[in-house]
Design a protein around this nucleic acid. Sequence first.
DNA 1: AAGGGGCGTTCCGATATTTAGAAAAATGTT
DNA 2: AACATTTTTCTAAATATCGGAACGCCCCTT
Lengths: 268, 268
Amino acid sequence: MNKPKYPVLTVMKALEIIEVLSQDSSNRGVGISELSRKLDLGKSTVHRILETLKYYGFIDKNEETNRYRLGWSLYNIGQMVPRQNQLYNLDNTLLIELSQKVKETVNVGVISGSEVVIISKIEGSAENLRVNLQPGEHEALHATALGKMLISELPEEAIRSMMDKDRGRLKKLTHNTITSVDDLIKEIEKTKRQGYAVDNEEFCIGLYCMAMPLRDYTGNIIAALSVSTPYARINETKIKETLEDLKEYSGKISKILGYQGKDSRPLP
Amino acid sequence: MNKPKYPVLTVMKALEIIEVLSQDSSNRGVGISELSRKLDLGKSTVHRILETLKYYGFIDKNEETNRYRLGWSLYNIGQMVPRQNQLYNLDNTLLIELSQKVKETVNVGVISGSEVVIISKIEGSAENLRVNLQPGEHEALHATALGKMLISELPEEAIRSMMDKDRGRLKKLTHNTITSVDDLIKEIEKTKRQGYAVDNEEFCIGLYCMAMPLRDYTGNIIAALSVSTPYARINETKIKETLEDLKEYSGKISKILGYQGKDSRPLP
DNA sequence: AAGGGGCGTTCCGATATTTAGAAAAATGTT
DNA sequence: AACATTTTTCTAAATATCGGAACGCCCCTT
């Protein structure tokens, strides 16, 4: 991010103090002089800011040791962040943008039981040929790109137990549907390797789908984002472009959901 | 808490902005004009502060809607708070203080499996007669004040299943030990009502203990604090005084651990 | 299409606030 | 007990903040 045009220096100092305190691994707290040295500020300045932060509960002062550490209001406020940035609160702006870019239908789905549920759908702009999945609809995990993506990071055993098999076979929806659990496991392996899932007329004849994961602040896949295209419009370059776009937007949305990199789960 | 003597007004404004954002239940974010009205600040002022906060990731701006909400650094920093204030990082100052006040041995214990583990011990100053429990030692839950306190808020079923019974009886350590699970349940009820637990020569002849809960930021009992006294030194007034002191210090420590009152778990 | 209201953003001069430093008080160390 | 280090108080100088005014933008109404 670029610097603000008119930064408020005093606020910056306060935030930097908070940052230093948050990096304190000694767990003993940090003293005024230490902060003053680290941030190159006058001791009295640091003192004044610390007292102000303390008044709001953002930091605590240990009266015995005269050291400061993070306070519980920061914890409480921090807890509000995921709640304000949940998937269901997301506005559709990004989805609409993506759908306009790829000119196809865009879906967001989550796992519910052993099915995918569509929680958002933006219709593609190419209007004559499109799929009609409505938000709230449940679909099979094994036959959709969303589904494959959603289960891709579950342990193999969990996947096996989720599949409600009909005499050991998965429900066949088209001639392309993967019906053997072992094959599905292999497909999931491939999905994991590639980082995206494909449904090549496995759910519905004439429909090609690609999906990528949406991760939240824990780093887990909590939803998936897909682009559904009529098979007729599919070709090498379109696939490549769509995957690029999917990557961009799944990344953007994950960022809003708090995903911060490859392995964002806080250490124990 | 009392106001700082020399508050930094600019920082206060920034913190108040954060507080207002954290109270936003619309999940749509808050705009500049709204903040400006709520906090009675100039729009440009709010704008400048928001941009500064954004630069540090403390808040996020939705470029589509021009609204601001809490940012993920606040979440990350918030996550550091419990880690910096864990029970195990607690300095012993308060325990030492308490032990000097009551002139007896003070213990802190947690549940491990179906036993109490002593994680801190401060020896009493009255030196000739004292108990010798070392930190790390495991003791029975049903025969100690710490143990009773620790299980006091568990569901009855959990307590029953924790008690490893010897033919339906609890291990008898002294003639006072509670050996029937039903009696223990009744004792736990009493403990809950009183808010403190007692071990009246149930663990060891000649030893009287009182314990109170240590709660963390979730409001749960994560540890217990006890005072152990040789039976010989026990009398009505001493019990009363000790309970007062235990109350004061268990409160103080719980506060450090983030406990914020009767029901501190943040609302949904 | 034009006008009006709301909003966010830029910029600037007045001035109120912050700042550093010095010094006092408190704390800890030799 | 004297010293060294830290925190806290206080003040005068100056800097950085503030709100107002103006601009541009978007949306809604007329």
